[in-house]
Amino acid sequence: MALDKNGIAQRIAQELRDGYYVNLGIGIPTLVANYIPSGIDVEFQSENGMLGMGPFPFEGEEDADLINAGKQTITALPGAVYFDSSTSFAMIRGQHVDLTVLGAMEVSEQGDIANWKIPGMMVKGMGGAMDLVASAKNIIVAMMHTNKQGESKLLRQCTLPLTGVKCVTRVVSNLAVLDITEKGFKLIERAPGVSVDEIKAATEGRLIIEGDIPEMKL
């Protein structure tokens, strides 16, 4: 069965390593914080200016001065630190952040990503996404494999305006885990009960299948 959004987040959480500083984008990526493997310490960076981001506050304890990059009220964990926006992006551009997880509308087999603009629709802006994708060394995209019309979002070439080029390292979708390689999307794992043929049918970009493809363990 294809994964739901929480399943995708759960699978991405397996990519976390002890000592990682992680930036999570809005949407599915935010859910990754709910599935940190036990026994490891990671810290979440929020590009509006904090490290050590904690869960949402209890009702009545919200602080207008303490929000995440999605403008939601949050809390700070022990060891947290606040800083200004230019320092925040120094962390990002300077590759001090170990892992970036973000959503996408399209990803190409070269690792290009489109996630900020649909021509003809109200454009809200790229926020910090272009800075993140241009600099991060490890970028995982969390996305549904196909759009609402059933069309593949893993393409030979992106059709939407790009956020960054040749930057995505791995895609975790509702159907599969795929790595971006020189030859295209390399299939690493299947969602439980999803066949290689189903993944093939849902992937427009070149798909590399080598040997038996294991199922994800969640």
């Binding site: 506050p57 919200e62 929000i67 939601q72």
Partner: peptide, 12 residues
């Protein structure tokens, strides 16, 4: 006034 744009909380 310090208005909050996205009030998000968890229950106790």
């Amino acid at each position: 006034e310090k208005r909050i744009e996205q009030r998000t909380v968890r229950s106790k």
